[in-house]
């Protein structure tokens, strides 16, 4: 009895918390009338999005949820190709936002998109270096110098495919110390000081103060199109369509450009 005392009290507290939470959400969602004009957009919208969209989509989500009080966005951010595999294996997602046409194509080819995927932004590679650019890196050629360590994305993920195209266009041979599994992992190797440079998207390099971006002309050869689509088996299709429309609207594009994305 003595042993169970505290546990039971904790349990009681947990139940109470849950009850309060239920009461609160119960009050907020059905009781708040939907703004007239908008059809009932509600429930959870599950969005599978490329890792490079992490910050901008979370920002857009706040605006979207503020405008649609009944709706809640849930994100699964990862490498686009991993997400495509998950979707094709039946993961219950409503929307897929991919960082490359090739990965979106694998989902569309498997018949899992609802309608034609749309290009909604473009992104360009930059050389991410430590803040202040201590090694004085000005272009791709500097990455071939001895003593400069470089991280690239693995070729299997879009940023790696883009990096490969850009490097091939330059005619240089760059040997990285690591092929990172996604763009944020490559970036974090720079911000932690483990490598001197990494090829990442401009928008990724813009996150945080630890790194800065160095433009290089060859990146124009490898501009990445981002596509978005509602999925065929979306559990919450109406809300998913509303979210995609929001991303494509002026509300969405304003946030996207603020994060450094280029509009198509």
């Amino acid at each position: 009895m003595m042993v169970f005392g505290p546990v039971r009290r904790r349990l009681a507290a947990a139940v109470a918390t849950a009850a309060v939470a239920a009461a609160l959400t119960g009050c907020s969602s059905p009781a708040t009338p939907e703004p007239s004009g908008s059809t009932a957009v509600g429930g959870t919208i599950t969005v599978f999005a490329a890792a490079s969209l992490t910050d901008v989509f979370e920002d857009i989500a706040e605006d979207f949820e503020a405008a649609h009080p009944g709706a809640r966005l849930e994100f699964n951010f990862a490498g686009s190709s991993a997400l495509a595999t998950q979707i094709n294996e039946g993961a219950p997602a409503d929307v897929f936002a991919s960082a490359s046409p090739a990965t979106m194509k694998t989902v569309a080819d498997a018949g899992n998109t609802d309608g034609e995927p749309v290009v909604f932004v473009r992104n360009q590679l930059v050389i991410a270096v430590e803040a202040g650019n201590p090694k004085g890196i000005t272009g791709l050629a500097d990455l071939t110098k001895p003593g400069i360590t470089v991280a690239l994305c693995a070729e299997q993920v879009p940023c790696g495919a883009a990096a490969k195209t850009a490097i091939e266009a330059s005619g240089l041979t760059i040997t990285p110390v690591s092929y990172e599994e996604n763009v944020r992992a490559a970036l974090s190797k720079v911000s932690l000081g483990e490598v001197d440079a990494a090829l990442v998207y401009r928008t990724d390099a813009a996150v945080g103060d630890a790194v800065e971006a160095v433009d290089f002309p060859e990146s124009a050869k490898a501009i990445n199109d981002y596509l978005i689509a509602v999925l065929k088996d979306a559990p919450n299709k109406a809300a998913a369509e509303a979210f995609v429309a929001w991303v494509l609207s002026a509300d969405g594009t304003a946030v996207l450009t603020r994060y450094g994305f280029q509009l198509p």
Binding site: V177, S178, Y179, E180, E181, K189
Partner: peptide, 11 residues
């Protein structure tokens, strides 16, 4: 993958 990175044949 976090500490050693990913390079064929080495890590």
């Amino acid at each position: 993958i976090t500490f050693a990175g990913n390079f064929p044949g080495r890590t």
